[in-house]
Structures are given as structure tokens and as C-alpha cells.
Design a protein around this nucleic acid. Structure first.
Lengths: 186, 186
DNA sequence: GTCTATAGCAGGATAGAC
DNA sequence: GTCTATCCTGCTATAGAC
């Protein structure tokens, strides 16, 4: 942790830029300039752009894994607050999109490897949301119509959309959307 | 109507392609091939790509205007069913995205003219949704927490996200999301 | 209004020296 | 592991003939 490798820097910076402007608009030179190396050096770590794209998705997915390990120690309502807060942080950080939202919105035009990586990641989130809702129903903390799985679907759609529409319509729109989600389960 | 001008064909085909693969991935040649002309001929109608982009957004916005003129003759609940059905049609037609969703997700990387056109369009939809929800509350047909404006924000986020996440997770996810919306107002 | 031809640029990717 | 140099491709856009 004392010194971060260039490989890690590349992934981290790429992730941030992709969340801001999307996979297609992001390019090697933007990263190279920020680190202070040439773009050919990035090809040393990631021969093709899609290799870097996969690394970004897996890095984000891995971070999410670490997060839920801690979140799962708390009550279902606290867990949902944690993920709402995570999205609030994305919004506050220059209105960036979540990884599944930015890759999902360009899904029809990314290499198959990237599609697969996004699919795996999103199913993990869906699974975690479903379990959280199920736990909340069992404990009596949550009350809503439909199945936990259906509520997880609705949350995924709304979370991804909240950042995109919030970028256009501003903070009020974004926060009204998150409030709607929170109210939909209690 | 007997014969559609090439200009109209260009806008219509561009709109469909943009909804499927996004503004950046769409290019003049794809349209040219479909119509059977050369891409330089498209520049005759739309000198720059962003001119065509603006035309596409305004065309979609104009169609929406025509639709709500008819929808507004019906009850609030019927009106909301009409827009849910519109999104179901998008999904059925090769899982394409709505115009505000596809331009919104690439908002940070499109010319200012396009940003403005999307903003105008989305505010029109937000306005119509707000009025519909207000009418439904007044008539007693709808019952929900929060303001009509906040519910409109939530709907916009969720509708845009439903198509994107539905593309990844399939028809069940998509329909669960639409059901969630319908249940949130009654 | 459509064509051919071509300019011009950006970005992904590779070869080979250090 | 990073560099310079270069290739290649795809796409936007323009000039000018028909």
C-alpha cells in the first residue's frame, strides 16, 4: 500500500474515467497523461482495451464483495442504507455512473468478454439485494408487495437510472429517486 | 405519406440505430447502406453528426407530443398504462433503449446542442408525468407518499434503467420493474 | 440530390531499442 | 517496464463533377 503499482493505478484511473464518460469515449492516452507514462506502456499491462475493461469490472466487483462482507453484519435496513449511500457518493463525486450502469447502457456495443463480466457482476448484486430484502421481510423490518427477487430487479433498474437521470436533472431529482426506493420497502 | 423523403428515412433509421447501439457507435455509413445511398449524401441533409442527433431527439420528442395529446383524453391510470406499454414496446423491439436513456447515459460526452435537446425533452416528459400523478391524486385513483414531482423523478429514473438492466437480465427483470412502478401509485 | 475521391484525424495496437 | 516510431483502421467531413 506504501507504493501503488502502475498496473493498479491504471485500473483505478480507468474505472473513474469510464464511470464519468463511458467505455467507448475513454482511451489509453487519458490514463497515460495522468500517470505520466506513454500509452504504449499501458499496452504492456493490458494488450487490448477490452482486457483493461474486464480488469476494471472485476476490480469494482471485488470492491463490492469486500463492502458487503461488512454490510452483512448489520440489519437489512442498514444494509439498504449502505447501498443508497454508495450511490449518493457516486453522485457527489462528479455525478459519475455506477459500473453496471455505464457498461449496461452500452451493452450492445462492447466485446463479449465485457458483456460476460458485467453479467456476472450484476447477478452478484441482484443476489445480495434479494437476500437483503428476504431477511428484512423475515425480521418484519420490511413490508412490500411482490417477491424479494422482484424488488431487487426494481432496485437495480432504479439505481442505475437514478445516476443517469440525476446527471441531467440535478440533485433534487436524484434524491427524490433514492427516497422513493427507501419508502418502497418500509 | 405515399413516399417518404430520404431526409425522413435518415432520421427514422438513425433513431432506431441510436436506440440500439448508442449515439457514438452509430455512424453515417450504417444509414447509407440501409437506404442505398452514400454517406456523403447524408451530409447533404445533416452537415455534422450532431445536426442529425438533434433532429433525432426532436423527432422523438415530437412523436411523444402527439401521443400524449391522445393519452390525455383518458384517466390518469390509463395514461400511466400507456407509457408503461410504450416502454414494453421498446423492450420487445430488440430491447432498444428510450431516447432519453441512451443520450442520458452518454451525456458527459455529447456536444452541447445535444445535451440541450435532451434536457428540453426530458423536462417535457417529467412535466407530463407530474401532471398525470397530480390528476390521479385529485381523482382518488392514485395513492402514494410524496409529491407528484418526486414520483415523476422516480419514474423517469426507473423507466430509463428498466430497459438497460432488462437488456442484461431479461424479460422477467424488465417486467418486474414495470410492475413495481405500477404498484407504486395505486 | 447523389456521386467519386480524398483529406484529415483520432485511437488502438505492434515492433524493437534501451 | 518504458520509450520512440510507426502502422492501420474507421469515421467525420469536404470538394467538386454530374
Amino acid at each position: 500500500m506504501a507504493t501503488e503499482s502502475n498496473r493498479d493505478k491504471i485500473i483505478e484511473l480507468s474505472r473513474d474515467i469510464i464511470q464519468h464518460i463511458g467505455y467507448h469515449s475513454f482511451n489509453y492516452k487519458q490514463i497515460a497523461v495522468l500517470i505520466g507514462i506513454k500509452n504504449s506502456s499501458i499496452h504492456h499491462y493490458f494488450p487490448a482495451k477490452e482486457d483493461l475493461g474486464v480488469a476494471v469490472i472485476e476490480s469494482d466487483s471485488s470492491d463490492f464483495n469486500d463492502k458487503i462482507k461488512n454490510w452483512n453484519l448489520e440489519s437489512p435496513l442498514k444494509r439498504t442504507d449502505y447501498i443508497l449511500d454508495l450511490y449518493q457518493q457516486y453522485f457527489n463525486d462528479g455525478m459519475k455512473l455506477c459500473i453496471i450502469g455505464t457498461f449496461g447502457s452500452s451493452y450492445e456495443d462492447i466485446p463479449e468478454k465485457l458483456q460476460t463480466a458485467v453479467n456476472v457482476y450484476i447477478e452478484k448484486i441482484a443476489q445480495w439485494l434479494s437476500e437483503t430484502f428476504k431477511d428484512g421481510l423475515a425480521s418484519g423490518e420490511f413490508r412490500f408487495k411482490g417477491t424479494p427477487e422482484a424488488m431487487a430487479s426494481a432496485w437495480l433498474s432504479t439505481l442505475a437510472g437514478s445516476l443517469q437521470m440525476g446527471r441531467l436533472r440535478g440533485a433534487v431529482h436524484f434524491e427524490e429517486t433514492l427516497d422513493h426506493l427507501r419508502n418502497s420497502i418500509i
